[in-house]
Amino acid sequence: MIWVSWRRQRPQLITLLAMLVVGAGVVVLLRSSMLDSITSSGLTECVTRTTQECSTNKSAGDFRAEWSTRLQLGQAAIIFLPVLIGLFIGAPLFARELEQGTHVLAFTQSVSRTRWMLSKLVVALVPALVVLIALQYLVWWWLTTAGVMGPRVNGSFQVFNFGIEHVSPVAYTLFAFAVGAFVGVVTRRTLVAMIVTLGAFTVLRFALFDVVTRVMTTQREVVTSGLSPTASRDASLVISQGYLDAAGQPIAPDKVGAAVQACKATWTPEGQQEYVACLAKSDLGRRYADFIPESQAWQAHLVDASIYGALAVLLLVGTGWALRRQS
């Protein structure tokens, strides 16, 4: 049964392999070219540390101008790869068979429908995930070479970094694939399945966007007013921030707004003591920030992956059920 699935999906698998070879080649070449560029411009220090000199240096500026877009394209490739896999491998997997009626051949043999479905799924999914992981790693390798002169400076929680790291891309791929397979079985038309998969995936990604942040536990940093919490300035993910009153409770935003308006007159660019004192009089003595530190990003990835993974499992079970009911 595995041989049959492999033989039937041979064209797709060859395309995946070609994509891997071409993608890997491109990334390797670009990375080595970029490395040369870094060493020849003497920017090796700037990769790991952001100093005053690195921000103002002309060659650093040139480097960024030349490489930013390319690095972002690398990110984009890994962002889009999951949905492309769902679209071109997941959606047609069952839709094409049902559309052409070839499922009848398999259904009238001794192999059970579940085994047939699993065989097709495994042969389609495993190579796709392997290619995804390989390309994900290659792009990550390239991005870390640019270090803080590239997109990685925005931290692990920035949307385009988060979506391409750790187990998240695998989870998104599983999810997109499962959506495609399920919609394919239900609609029985390849083109319709592809369009619906694209729509459903996009909608769900937006909808589940900040579920992770709501589920995880946060830490709170408290500073005196006048200073801003370090969490808001580094790569941590800030969930919410504001002012605390004397009892340690967050103050409502409209009260904060009113107090800041009232104290605006006392603010001077040279020093802020008067401004801070004014705020303290309105009980706005301390500021807080609820955040998830960057070192905890891996936890966020696990939560993210479990949500999408659970959805994927549900959809695949649904696919199996729909195939059994198919008549």
Binding site: V4, R7, R8, G101, T102, H103, V104, L105, T108, Q109
Partner: peptide, 29 residues
């Protein structure tokens, strides 16, 4: 039981030899 449907469900992209192998692998007997 064996069945031949009106639209002759077959894998068009396989050769006759490969099809024989494919259908054989989907059957116990």
């Amino acid at each position: 039981v064996s069945y031949l449907g009106q639209n002759r469900s077959l894998y068009h992209d396989l050769t006759v030899r490969e099809l024989t192998r494919a259908v054989g692998s989907m059957n116990d007997r």
